[in-house]
Amino acid sequence: MSTVRIHDPVTDENDGVASPELDTAHGPILYLEDVTVSFDGFRALNVLSLYIDDGELRCIIGPNGAGKTTMMDVITGKTRPDAGTVFFGQTIDLLKLDEPSIAQAGIGRKFQKPSVFEQLTVFENLELAMHTDKRVWPTLFARLNSTQRDDIEIVMETIGLTAQRQERAGSLSHGQKQWLEIGMLLMQKPKLLLVDEPVAGMTHQETERTAELLLSLAGKHSVVVVEHDMEFVRSIARKVTVLHEGSVLTEGTMDEVQNHPRVIEVYLGD
């Protein structure tokens, strides 16, 4: 497989699933405003404000404990903030939705630790993630139609796991699990992808392919990548946000950010 073929969710609107109307008429797809989260007095997020534009590829970096994962938790509904507002587009208040509703509204997340369903096969993992009616009864009587089958085939090819389709996810290598999770993300056809450390544990080639994949996704989707690997960030980043102690330290291109005196101070220690 030499080129990465991308399954196009925007033009594939044949699944007949109604999700809440996403209004991005004013540019940003995600608004975080004055978000504060504290655990037992420790402020993981401190009046954080962040905007992600529609179709943007944004990299978020920051030292340990800067609040990167907590931010993702807030966006996906895992953690409720003590204060602040989080909107998806103009109209969807994410703080009012639970995790599955947020996922169905069009936010997909890839976790830091690869989390796939180890007892299920690669095919089944992708099938579960597929963008479709996910209520109980439709699921009980669901049958795959040919379009859906094709979708799964395409994604399997994209992530290079066609040969492993009937293998249990638990028996895959670390890198393959990472890919499978990215595949699941693609199957969800999200409008916004949150990707937490996608290349951790990947070989050099795998990392390159991941970069290629993420770049090709941007434009049609908004992608937020949290990553420690600076080289990787440099290879994909257009705009970089630096988090520190729960709020935004600075934003800009990779070069601007790297020459910012505060950033150097934070990373190199004072």
Binding site: T76, K78, D98, E99, P100, S101, A103, Q104, G108, R109, F111, S115, V116, F117, E118, Q119, L120, L128, A129, K134, R135, V136, T139, M184, Q188
Partner: peptide
């Protein structure tokens, strides 16, 4: 999937 990774199942959109 719920048995093996409950919260993961939530994040792909199942109640």
């Amino acid at each position: 999937a719920v048995r093996d990774a409950e919260s993961r199942t939530r994040f792909i959109g199942y109640k």
